[in-house]
Design a binder for these strands. Structure first.
Lengths: 228, 228
DNA sequence: GCGATGCTTCGGTTACGATCGAACTATGAA
DNA sequence: TTCATAGTTCGATCGTAACCGAAGCATCGC
């Protein structure tokens, strides 16, 4: 009975509501200070500090000191995937805190998931990439095709650069609001970054939602069509 | 801060050591009674009973009454995958309770993972199926090829039957002792079942390990060769 | 230097949940 | 029927961890 990895430890880390809220906030991808995290956790800074220390000791978070601020982020993408997969699992069982899916329509439409695009627009983009033959799907896996590599070059994404990182190029990530897959991995990140760089969309201050400009919206829908 | 699925709830369910031990025992795939689960959890039956009630209320377990026994199993494969993914995550962070990987060499060699083969033999089988062109791998996804369908027919597995179930045919499952993927899904289950039916291997009473007979061992290694 | 801000550490309180003994229910066997 | 086994429910204990106020560092701006 004592064999194997200790899942109770990380389960307990995630099992506290305040800590869970902090982790959920951090899959927004941006680094947050201890005070901000105390806010999302609904607790005082003292309490948050001890929670954050535990999460860091457990290897779920890393902190970066910058002046008199301490910025916390998820330790790596594996943590984000774990949290997301638990969210997907919980959503599938109806363990929702309020409505099914994100409350605000904006969140449901487009939001950030660690560092890539999720929500309605996220699944639409992946669907379109598959339909156009840029990405092939086998089982739950995703792979970039030669055609896809060319197409991406046209919109300014050099896949060669992405390959050099150890991180997988394409990854499927289950969207818990749409209950379908969207594109993660370094390619997912690069695509979202390019939208932000082009000014098609921007992140909001306090939320995970992504706001598309009217022009960006038009461009996005044209670039990633879905046939009826 | 209140949006989204409640991961704290299931985190807390898994976060208790006694409950985590029970869940880990149940990914062995066989139904266990409350008394047996109390044993693996290292607690009395009264305590186990309350734990099991909570796990059932949380949707992680289902129970089946049979005479004066109550047999508990994981609610479905999604629970098994969640536990396994948490094990993989924990193993990657070095959150081990004792040695890295399973303690007994037998467990490391071949063990059951919910309903399919894991351990050294599990990853070997998948490697061999990919090398022979029976299964194709794209990203993290797995798909059965036409050649594979024919090959499987030869060893007595009718893929058509498997397709009728809603469960995915091929699924990749991260092996936490080998740190590599092995084959899950209904095909993984069917393959293990056939080994057991043929008498090549048998399950052990109290452990997750799978014991191959000398003849079964020979057949298995011949059927799933790996080139150097 | 000074005060203000961000965060951690300390100390003490509180509450929840894990635990078990004992009593109770249900099924099976004699 | 009676006894034994399997399991749940009740009641009470106990420990731990979450929590916050207050004090202590560290860093910034002045």
């Amino acid at each position: 009975m004592k064999e194997g990895p200790d899942i109770a430890q990380i389960g307990a880390l995630i099992g506290d509501p305040a800590r869970a809220n902090m982790l959920a906030a951090l899959i927004g991808g941006r680094a947050l200070t201890a005070t901000e995290l105390a806010g999302v956790g609904g607790i005082t800074v003292q309490t948050a500090s001890t929670h954050l220390a535990k999460l860091e000791a457990g290897g779920l978070l890393t902190q970066r000191k910058q002046g008199r601020h301490r910025y916390f982020t998820l330790a790596d993408e594996a943590v984000a995937r774990l949290i997301e997969s638990m969210m997907g699992f919980a959503a599938g069982r109806g363990h929702l805190r309020h409505q099914p899916g994100p409350k605000e329509p904006a969140l449901r439409k487009a939001r950030i998931c660690y560092d890539h695009l999720a929500g309605d627009y996220g699944v639409r983009m992946l669907d379109s990439l598959i339909a156009s033959g840029s990405i092939e799907a086998v089982g739950e896996g995703l792979g970039l095709t030669e055609k896809g590599e060319g197409d991406l070059k046209c919109i300014g994404i050099d896949v060669g650069d992405l390959r050099s990182s150890r991180r997988p190029l394409c990854r499927s990530c289950l969207d818990w609001s749409e209950r379908r897959a969207h594109l993660a991995g370094s390619l997912g990140k690069a695509l979202l970054s390019s939208f932000l760089d082009k000014g098609w969309a921007r992140r909001t201050a306090e939320s995970r939602s992504i706001l598309f400009s009217p022009e960006g919206d038009r461009q996005f829908l044209m670039l990633f069509p879905v046939d009826p």
